[in-house]
Design a protein around this nucleic acid. Structure first.
Lengths: 341, 341
DNA sequence: GTGAAAGCGCTAACAA
DNA sequence: TTGTTAGCGCTTTCAC
């Protein structure tokens, strides 16, 4: 396939009448190499079109300078932005990124992790799939001391870092806001409670009810996959209820938007009849009419911080090993919940 | 970092009192190895927890079994789906994927390509950034005979393959549909005409006008970045026009949706005053009110076919080297253009 | 400050 | 059908 020979450090060495080891050292600013030698080496290497051979280097050093990323799905603004943040940081440190999608399936997640392990990634950044139950599939990594940083959808496991927002507080804020807008029967459309993000938001919801003197009613909890169809289904369930909710807090924007559209089709007014709030501040939240009240997620920062933490761990640079980093979120109030103008 | 020693083919060989090369061959179903030997090897390898070392193998074979992907942005349904299609195919053939985003910038694209080249990818799948002008940055790949397959936003260069839809025809169909719905002044909100997708859609637009006896009016062409802001700006431009268009064909859904929202804010009725059609069939097209008429894009297939073509090229499997593969698209008519019920 | 040499783990040409 | 052997290109220890 490839016909032109690669330039190696041997070629550069021969040309300069020095040894390959000196070239190797010169190229990476080893302190024992005289400045002039180093400059000569670098100049010639560039001129000859020398390119470091990563495999030889990886083989020798037993590390790949590659980080694996597993995300549930790529097709959200949140993920794309988080990944952009990771790319920025990792490129800066000379690391590459291998991204794979679990497609929200725990089973596929297992195979993603295994594939990345087989690619000998130096570390892993992961946000869990919707229905991942066990964390056994990470053991192969633990056994080899390959560090893992969880972001957004995290798991508890000792020695692992997590980068999250305060989902409890966010859920609390959204629910309180709905109540303050006059809602008395707030329904929660949540995700799989296995996932921290959803269980915490739910906890926040319950706490807010309690703090405002409202009783938690399990009929007002719907657990779903939070996709488009889930929003539609939830709307239908609501329409059939004897005593309908007057507010909905959904755990993501996608399902909130789907629910709004479906409720409107049935002739309900948002927020008049039912106020609706979502989560994530996806662009779609500003397209739906009325615009969606939601929680803004610091996607880029989550990506940057997760990547930085991982690299610090790889380089043993970190001064003290934090186990969880919590970032700021923000409640964004829009028309879908504004009742008292 | 890593403390436990890796199991190598030598360890497996020693245990079985055979040679490492036999193990190597047995593991990859080399035809010259007896079945029983092969089975013994595989069984023991699994038992000992053997894992192929990719670097040693890459170093030896001079290929990495890794494919680079460069996309403008990750945050669209189209791209996520196309990438899922690529993953499916490449995993099947034992290839890995390295994905990077050019963020719609030609400059960043150059650096993505160079990084991937330095990672020694065996091949490249790329959709061009918005403003890429030259294709010089691919020369390093050409020089080393690293095959490139373009998808969606493609470039002409000899020996390269492209996977696209018939953008001319799609543009023609959308525009014709608008005209058939009674539009007489159809505005086109297009993208950078450097990109095939946008120039072709524009060509289709003009041809449709001509074929329906309408004159092309350069005042009815707006070129923009097709993002949210571009849709808003276009709406304002339209509102200020002396004689407004009665139809808009935008080259993507994002800008179409933004324009619709903005025009509605100004009190215009869609499709009554202005009919609007987009392109891509992103999920957002079914959220906006009225639902958006658009072109459905076979995203998954584009990804699968692009990846398959690349792998065939890498394996020299292809019987005859196609230079361009054109997939089917489909006009999806929704309420944003339906005037005569 | 620089060089010699060993070896990371695998593959493939050649030998048997 | 299996074994021997020579590297792929780089890093790093040890020597000078």
């Amino acid at each position: 396939m490839k016909n032109s020979k690669e330039v190696t450090i041997y070629d550069v060495a021969k040309e300069l009448h020095i040894s390959p080891s000196t070239v190797s050292r010169g190229l990476k600013d080893h302190p024992h190499i005289r400045k002039e030698t180093r400059n000569k080496i670098k100049a010639l290497a560039r001129e000859m079109g020398y390119q470091r051979n990563k495999f030889a280097s990886s083989l020798r050093k037993m590390r790949t300078e590659t980080i694996g990323v597993v995300v549930p799905k790529l097709n959200s603004y949140f993920m794309a932005t988080a990944i952009a943040g990771m790319e920025k940081v990792t490129n800066q440190y000379g690391y590459g990124l291998i991204i794979s999608q679990s497609q929200e399936s725990g089973k596929q997640e297992v195979s993603c992790v295994s594939t990345l392990f087989n690619s000998r990634v130096d570390g892993l950044l992961i946000s869990l799939a919707f229905d991942t139950e066990k964390t056994d599939h990470f053991n192969i990594l633990f056994n080899k001391n390959i560090p893992i940083v969880f972001f957004d959808r995290v798991a508890e496991c000792k020695g692992c870092m997590s980068v999250v927002i305060d989902n409890f507080k966010a859920g609390y804020e959204v629910t309180s806001h709905l109540i303050e807008q006059g809602c008395r029967r707030v329904l929660h459309l949540g995700g799989n409670l296995l996932r921290n993000v959803y269980s915490e938001r739910f906890r926040g919801y319950k706490q807010a009810l309690a703090d405002h003197g409202l009783k938690y009613d399990s009929n007002l909890l719907i657990i779903s996959e939070l996709n488009n169809q889930a929003g539609i289904d939830a709307a239908h369930t609501i329409l059939k209820m004897k005593s309908r909710p007057d507010g909905i807090f959904t755990a993501n924007d996608t399902s909130a938007v789907a629910a709004i559209c479906e409720l409107q089709k049935a002739g309900l007014s948002i927020p008049g009849d039912i106020a609706v709030a979502g989560f994530n501040n996806e662009p779609i939240s500003q397209v739906v009419k009325p615009n969606l009240t939601t929680i803004d997620y610091p996607a880029r920062e989550i990506g940057e911080i997760a990547a930085t933490s991982l690299i610090n761990k790889l380089n043993n640079t970190e001064i003290f090993s934090l186990s969880t980093i919590v970032l700021q979120h923000m409640l964004i109030v829009r028309d879908s919940t504004l009742r008292n103008k």
